[in-house]
């Protein structure tokens, strides 16, 4: 499969948008007309062509632009990529996983040749052709995790498993929904989820942790999370909050369809073989409300979900200032008709 990569930006002039094909393959996260926090984990297996499940590590038309944006974030703030000293082995695991998945899923764009420990990696969209020794960090321009995650869409958290818990001891985080890797690095599963409202009381994290601790090799799992962002900005970090926070006041009835984006995270979980760590890719997909309403089912459902969202979740997701404007906008696309089950367009 050959992808035509878009030339676009996720900052300054924000000229990101989805093609018609991109809209159809968007992972709309709501399978019913209301939302409540849930573990909602399912096996991460391949799905139909034309969906984001075509390959288990999805590459789409935004790939090159997203990688350019990541490089800009890292140039300003190198602490977005960190790996505690004991996590290097897991970094090699991740490098192998991503290279194998990319090469298998998109042979026109990526190529991996292994000759014992000597590997050659070709990334055509980014113009990379490197030969290195697997396991020898000195043969790469960055550590193994940073090297490969500068070439893969989405954020990556690597979790060390010990003492009956998971510890966020490495990661590449530049497309996050307002959390800081630099601050959360070294925390355990309960600690880094601490700021999430409601879910602790519901026992969601206890169950999720127990499940994750038993995650099997060769059996990746996935779930969705979501929020909404004003402007197609990938880097909504606490670090840069003063830069993007004021945008929340910029939403008007005239620009809401273009400015407000549904931001969906496809989170997957993979047991890494050599390190017994877990990698947790958090892949961010953005869609403008005016793109989303071109699918009638999604428009109706988005309106109902946003209208009925509990106030604490509205605050936690940072939607407070402009939610009424977005609800009004979406209401025009909701005729009250019933919606079909599942997430796919009718």
């Amino acid at each position: 499969m050959t992808i035509t990569f878009r030339r676009e930006t996720f900052r300054d002039d924000y000229n990101f948008s989805n093609s018609a094909v991109g809209i159809r393959r968007f992972p709309f996260p709501f399978d019913r007309d209301h939302y409540m926090y849930a573990v909602n984990i399912e096996p991460h297996v391949k799905g139909h062509p034309g969906t984001i499940y075509e390959s288990l590590i999805d590459v789409d038309e935004h790939y090159v632009a997203e990688m350019q944006d990541r490089a800009l974030v890292l140039a300003e703030d190198p602490l977005r990529s960190q790996s505690l000293p004991h996590m290097e082995l897991a970094g090699w695991d991740l490098l192998e996983l991503l290279m194998e998945q990319l090469a298998a899923g998109y042979p026109a764009h990526f190529e991996l040749r292994r000759s014992g420990k000597r590997w050659r990696w070709v990334n055509r969209p980014l113009g990379i052709d490197d030969t290195f020794v697997f396991g020898a960090a000195s043969t790469l321009p960055y550590g193994p995790m940073e090297y490969i995650t500068r070439q893969a869409q989405g954020d990556f958290c690597i979790l060390d498993q010990r003492d009956g818990n998971l510890w966020m001891d490495a990661g590449m985080v530049t497309t996050q929904a307002d959390w800081s890797l630099d601050f959360d690095l070294g925390m355990n599963f309960m600690e880094w989820h601490a700021p999430v409202p409601r879910a602790h009381e519901m026992g969601v994290f206890d169950r999720a942790l127990k499940f994750m601790l038993n995650l099997g090799q060769g059996q990746p799992m996935r779930r969705f999370n979501w929020t909404m962002t004003v402007n197609p900005r990938l880097d909504t970090s606490p670090e840069t909050y003063p830069k993007w926070g004021p945008d929340r006041r910029s939403v008007t009835a005239d620009n809401v369809g273009d400015k407000v984006h549904l931001r969906v995270e496809l989170q997957s979980f993979w047991r890494l073989p050599r390190s017994n760590a877990i990698v947790f890719p958090i892949r961010c997909y953005l869609i403008k409300l005016e793109e989303l309403v071109t699918v009638p089912k999604w428009a109706r459902r988005m309106h109902r979900v946003l209208r009925d969202l509990p106030p604490d979740l509205v605050d936690y997701k940072g939607l407070t200032r402009w939610r009424p404007i977005a609800v009004d906008y979406l209401a025009a696309f909701d005729d009250g008709a019933a919606t079909s089950p599942g997430i796919w367009p009718d």
Binding site: S180, F183, L185, P246, R249
Partner: peptide, 17 residues
């Protein structure tokens, strides 16, 4: 954060300086 031995301080008026 135990690693940093600190609480997190985040700009309180970023949205409306």
């Amino acid at each position: 954060s135990r690693r940093l031995a600190a609480f997190q301080g985040v700009c309180v008026d970023a949205e409306e300086p």
